[in-house]
Amino acid sequence: MLEQLGAVTRQVRTPADLAGVDALVMPGGESTTMSRLLDTAGLFEPLATRLTAGMPVFGTCAGMILLADEVLDGRPDQRSFGMIDLSVRRNGYGRQVDSFEADVAVAGLDDTFHVVFIRAPKVERTGDTVEVLASHEGVPVLARQAQVLVASFHPELTSDRRVHAMFLDMVHTSAATAA
């Protein structure tokens, strides 16, 4: 989807893959599995360094969990990068039979955005520095703090590219500021 918007993409599995990447998407999956693989691939520390240095990042679902300051109902050994000041509860919306889709209003977009939640994490607290860009039934589902964008839904499961475009705008603005 990012390629349809003109970006060049690659998959990052090892520290070597990370070099030459300007921005990162941390996708959905199981956050416990991803946390473990980040460790075994030796990717956690290099990634933490890049994120702290201000590399733009978009975390969706499990990616959001990995970027959050506080993870509730996670595993004790689960690590997160603590890049955005919010508390998130794993599987906060329930199991797969509770997974759902809905329409939400997103700040800066004219029409509603159709979103898909899969065993989604639920945001339970946001800090003062976090800008909430969309909510569903009063709970934030899309939020931003500096170069960190997080969503508890899966924008890649629908064909609407507007949230991805929002992230690319962030990346371009960040690159322009750094230059």
Partner: peptide, 17 residues
Amino acid sequence: AAGSKGTYRVKRGLAEM
């Protein structure tokens, strides 16, 4: 906005993950 469960996309979505 109310949300619908058990749709094809929601079901396939977990497989995607």
